[in-house]
């Protein structure tokens, strides 16, 4: 065998390998979208930029930090599935935090011995306040046919104004220390409590979306509301519930974040609308409604958490980080369009 031949054979096998890799690449792209690639790229880049990135501790950190966004993104997914979206998720976080902290502190001052009771009172008050925004959104959108854009934008202003008005812009102190110790910093079986709560909620929501009638109805209403109506589905109720779910999940995130911060803050959550929509879109949730998977959304939120963490470790300035996140969102949408075009093209 001459050198020339050997070269040719080698070329042949590399070409075969390249072809096979390309094929796998295509399969992944078609099936799961861009997210797996983005995840790999992010991990590689940040691992190169900072040696602390790929440590078990840091990764656990990423998971813990991402829980808040994961919860909000899952809520946002319900709104997106029905063909709308919710711009008030950030406000819900803030209002939950302020109302919850105020109620808890007041209860604790009144009954210094009843720690558990005051924590419960605070959490219930916060959750109720946050969910109430979702309820109002739901009523406006389902009953009065207000566009989700206007409705949630209006409620974002209303909620934020209320939170500022209640606190005068200063943080709310005076919650029992046990609250933060349990829901902010506590661990169970070596897992942070917020992570455990998030995992439990992921399981519940997965079940709701895939194994209950209601879950199916969200997809149907988002896919074609008229067809859903003619199939006997209560479309108003379904729309309403989507925004209530969204509000409730954002409220849970608000409570957990308050525990972590140990104060009630009106200034949290401002980036949540953008980030949660980005997480969903990167995960392949259709902006037109009717399409999207919960597990992908969880990965979408984790991905954004990963990027933020990596950028922090790499000491990228926080203002620049905002630029990167915005660019990522647009990149995700563009690449999804390219993917659709690509699917149409190969389809063979």
């Amino acid at each position: 065998m001459s050198d020339h031949d050997r070269m040719a054979v080698k070329n042949e096998t590399t070409r075969g390998l390249v072809a096979r890799v390309l094929y796998v690449f295509q399969l992944v792209l078609v099936r799961w979208g861009v997210l797996p690639f983005l995840l790999i790229i992010a991990v590689v880049v940040f691992a190169l930029l900072s040696e602390n990135f790929l440590t078990g501790r840091n990764l656990m950190n990423v998971v813990r930090q991402s829980t808040y966004l994961t919860l909000v993104s899952m809520g946002q997914m319900f709104a997106l599935l029905t063909g709308g979206f919710d711009l008030s998720v950030g406000t819900i976080l803030a209002l939950t935090s302020v109302v919850g902290a105020t109620a808890m502190a007041a209860a604790y001052t009144a009954m210094p011995d009843a720690v558990v009771l005051s924590i419960v009172i605070g959490m219930v008050a916060g959750a109720a306040a946050g969910t109430a925004i979702g309820v109002v959104n739901g009523i406006g959108i389902s009953l009065f046919n207000v566009s989700p854009f206007m409705m949630s934008l209006g409620m974002a202003s209303v909620g934020f104004g209320l939170a500022l008005y209640m606190t005068g812009g200063t943080p709310v102190y005076g919650m029992p220390i046990e609250f933060g110790d349990t829901f902010g910093f506590g661990t169970l079986l070596n897992l942070p409590v917020p992570v455990i709560i998030t995992i439990a909620l992921i399981a519940v929501l997965y079940f709701v979306l895939n194994w209950t009638r209601l879950g199916r109805y969200f997809y149907a209403v988002g896919g074609n509301i008229k067809a859903a109506r003619l199939s006997g589905i209560n479309t108003r109720l379904t729309l309403f519930l989507a925004y209530v779910f969204c509000g409730a999940l954002a409220a849970v995130a608000g409570i957990l974040l308050t525990a972590r911060l140990d104060t009630g803050e009106a200034n949290i959550g401002a980036t949540m609308p953008l980030l949660s929509i980005a997480a969903c879109v990167i995960a392949g949730v259709s902006l037109r409604g009717g399409v999207g998977r919960l597990e992908n959304v969880v990965f979408g939120a984790l991905f954004i958490g990963l990027v933020q963490n990596g950028m922090n470790l790499a000491r990228i300035e926080s203002y620049l980080q905002i630029v990167v996140i915005g660019a990522l969102l647009i990149f995700a949408v563009v690449s999804d369009q390219l993917r659709l075009r690509y699917i149409a093209k190969i389809s063979s």
Binding site: R216, Y219, A220, G223, N224, K226, A227, A228, L230, S286, R288, G290, V291
Partner: peptide, 12 residues
Amino acid sequence: AEGLVMARSVRE
């Protein structure tokens, strides 16, 4: 327009 949810499966 009114009959099918085009983006979902036949089964659904």
